[in-house]
Design a protein around this nucleic acid. Structure first.
Length: 458
RNA sequence: GGCGUCGUACCCAAGUGGUCUAAGGGAGCAGUUUGCAAAACUGUCAUUCAUCGGUUCGAAUCCGAUCGACGCCUCCA
């Protein structure tokens, strides 16, 4: 099988060959736990989920590590603002993050290392960088990486250092640095850091942002691993700096393939009535969107394209998900056992392993859906064909995870439905219609299908 | 100022030199089905790919210009 991924480092699709045969090591940049992650963040996490599921489905053993950033400017600020300890803030938002991952059916990483548990290892790496002449200390006790000491600096982001604009942020930086673009490995303690600090050879302080990923990725996956993912905004400075640190300190090839997902953009004004323009997973679920719809909406465009998120998109996704589920339920009624796969399944996988072309793969799936529906309509679908179809949908769903499990219908609703059924048998249409209304008021839709009544939440 | 991305039907979205008179989903329209309603299913729906030039036997796909949208340039997935 020809697996290809687009590598940000080379800006082209490359054949994927893992370092260790049969195994894939993946490091994905996780959340900074200072607030609830929003749907945009989850676009990236879902892209990584799809990547992982595909690799697993085609037979790889995947080792996946996702970091949790639990100390930085924002987490400290939040703790200060709310007069809480850093740990109180970060544990709260870490827990919420885990909940949201589960709600979106995103498979958990094998490890979720947190920055504050790896401070000593970071100090070791910083010391190495100083020893190697790649970093220097300043009077106030900070440590900076000297980008001029690392010849490949700017390679990932394709930055020409000479062309860099002196931005306000850089020029207003209070630290004294040799080169404006030098970045912090260790930040000396400041007043507003409160009691957040660790001892180091350079005095009290805390690590710079990029250190944790350099340290934790290599600690859990080895100095050289297969894939490193994140959002496009991480390309620079985060991943660029990470490469500089890791390669300079460990003299390693570090990462073979860098994969980045594009941003999700809020397009529909209605969704952003308040400032901030963001939606969290619980908010979207409360708005009546299912986790399957959310998953579908996020994978219905390619991960390297910007995705304009809107209510309309979610409504479209809901209908698409419904269409697939409709066929699935029909097939379940017809199928008998068997584990044969249709040719379309091979196509489906081939398209997905070509840089995760989820929209195109969905096209194949829907063509298949129509094909089977046509046969069902003509009463020409054999039990065997139905089971083949069912196998395809089940297998595809190992990646997509958009098939709905049987909804748990509450007892009182079941009673009303049963009552309505008997009313219909007696052709008591008035009572039947009243009961349908009543169910609707309670948030349940009943449909009379040729082979029975179906009931599902509004 | 530097680097880079994108512009495909009413909406979403694949396709990146010939099989494209452009996949798929949604909406619309027509039909089948139905106690009613709804749903479901089927069919239909871009001679055209922002605009203008060029390269080529051949371009949505390559090159140039123009217009438009956007991202990054130190802590944002």
């Amino acid at each position: 099988m020809n697996i290809k991924f687009y590598n940000t480092l080379t800006r082209q699709k490359e054949n994927f060959n893992p370092i260790k045969s049969g195994e894939v090591s993946i490091y994905t940049c996780g959340p900074t736990v200072y607030d609830r992650s929003h749907i945009g963040n989850f676009r990236t996490f879902l892209f990584e989920d799809i990547l992982k599921r595909i690799l697993q489905l085609v037979g790889y053993k995947v080792k996946h590590v996702m970091n949790i950033t639990d100390v930085d400017d924002k987490t400290i600020k939040k703790a200060n603002d709310e007069s809480k300890t850093l740990a109180e803030i970060t544990s709260k938002y870490t827990a919420e993050f885990m909940e949201d991952l589960a709600m979106l059916k995103i498979l958990p990483a094998d490890e979720f290392p947190v920055a504050t548990n790896h401070i000593q290892e970071m100090i070791v790496m910083i010391s190495t960088l100083i020893k190697n002449g790649n970093a220097y200390t300043t009077d106030n006790g900070s440590v900076f990486f000297s980008i001029e000491s690392y010849k490949d600096y700017g390679k990932l982001a394709q930055l020409d250092l000479k062309g860099l604009k002196q931005t306000e942020r850089v020029s207003s930086d209070e630290y004294t640095k040799d080169h404006p673009q030098d970045f912090a490995l260790w930040k000396a303690w400041k007043e507003e850091d409160g009691d957040v600090s660790w001892d180091s050879p350079w005095g009290k302080g805390r690590p710079g942002w990029h250190m944790e990923c350099s340290v934790m990725s290599t600690q859990y996956l080895g100095n050289h691993f297969d894939i490193h993912c994140g959002g496009v905004d991480n390309i620079f400075p985060h991943h660029e700096n990470e490469i500089a640190q890791s390669c300079a300190a460990l003299n390693t090839q570090f990462v073979n393939i860098w994969m980045h997902s594009e941003h999700l953009i809020m397009a529909d004004e209605k969704m952003s009535k308040s400032l901030g323009n963001i939606k969290t997973i619980p908010e979207l679920l409360a708005d009546g969107h299912s986790n399957e719809s959310l998953r579908f909406a996020l994978i219905s465009s390619h991960y390297r394209s910007k995705l304009a998120f809107s209510n309309n998109k979610l409504e479209d996704a809901k209908k698409s998900v419904h269409r697939i589920n409709e066929l699935y339920h029909k097939l379940q009624k017809i199928a008998d056992a068997g584990n044969t796969m249709p040719d379309e399944f091979d196509q489906f996988i081939e398209i997905l392993v070509d840089d995760l072309n989820t929209p195109k793969a969905l096209g194949v799936l829907f063509n298949y859906v129509r094909k089977l529906n046509r046969k069902i309509d003509n009463d020409k679908l054999s039990k065997k064909e139905a089971s083949i179809g069912l196998n395809f949908l089940n297998k595809a769903d190992i990646i997509l995870s958009i098939l709905k499990k049987q909804d748990d219908i509450p007892e009182n609703i079941v009673q009303l439905v049963t009552q309505r059924e008997s009313a219909r048998k007696e052709k008591n249409w008035k009572l039947s219609d009243d009961l349908r209304e009543e169910l609707k008021k309670k948030g349940w839709i009943v449909e009379d299908l040729p082979d029975g009544t179906k009931c599902y939440p509004l």
